[in-house]
Design a protein around this nucleic acid. Structure first.
Lengths: 144, 144
DNA sequence: TCCAAATTAATTGCACGCGAGACAATTTTA
DNA sequence: TAAAATTGTCTCGCGTGCAATTAATTTGGA
């Protein structure tokens, strides 16, 4: 019994790889005064500004209990504005400030640095990414 | 600019897969009153009882700032004991209680359930695991 | 022997991430 | 139209993770 070690578990491999990613991102994002989840939100807004909390949460697989305080921190840092949607007062839309939009240029350098740290060619990275997405979706389906 | 979506990023694929894993584990481990990190610690202790905080941290890639409160919770739940090493008073050794040892049997069922949820054959899971470990180690090397 | 350096665990403060519950706005249904 | 159900967000409490600091101890060299 107990003949396996942690690295034998796929779940732990993913768990520790995720930590390694955030550790690798931390010093790069610190230059922009961002955390990794904050960076992910900006990535979504750079692509489509003005999304609602719910729309952001669906893409991030996070709920509003996580997003609300996170978005408030992004707001107090001056990167986004939060405003109720006049057409439906339940909805809060998140829009970039000029400052938040300006961060996109600096983020290009972060992406380049991470690409180098990963050390995989484009094809291998894409293949691994596909497998992780498939695994994630299967796990999420199993929970429901 | 901003032509990519989140699922195009390997880092996000790993990030969201990790969340999916802990979400999938949560209901299974709740039956044992354990969180996923607590479960990982028990896995290590089932394999080798009496390890120090530092030894556990090295295998989990976590530091004492994370482990100390986590181990205290495991102790107050009655699963482990924390005791200074008489030979070196700086070191705290963690030993399983009878109750903590008994959990290993119930954990077998958790492992079976997760294996089914992952939905990969043994070879594919092992190959994916290898790739994640390699990626993790490369990222960790890049930070230092 | 004694002192400086190194090692280790604990502590503190901050940022997620989630479950549960509260609440207001909106939609559905009777 | 009024009651009921749903939706979107917020708040709270708890459990990680991590950086930085502190305290205690051991080790190594003069």
């Amino acid at each position: 019994m107990s003949s396996f070690c942690l690295d034998d578990l796929l779940c732990f491999a993913v768990y520790s790889a995720e930590h390694a990613f955030t550790r690798a991102y931390r010093p790069l994002l610190k230059a922009l005064d961002l955390t990794y989840p904050q960076y992910l939100i900006l990535v979504l807004l750079w692509k489509a500004d003005g999304q609602s909390v719910k729309e952001l949460g669906e893409q991030l697989h996070l709920d509003s209990g996580t997003l609300t305080p996170l978005l408030k921190r992004l707001e107090s840092a001056g990167h986004v504005r939060r405003a109720r949607n006049p057409a439906d007062e339940r909805v809060v839309n998140i829009t970039l400030t000029e400052q938040g939009r300006a961060l996109e240029v600096k983020a290009q350098e972060v992406i380049r640095s991470m690409g180098a740290a990963i050390g995989l060619c484009r094809e291998d990275a894409a293949a691994l990414r596909e497998k992780m997405i498939t695994l994630r979706d299967r796990l999420n389906a199993a929970v429901d």
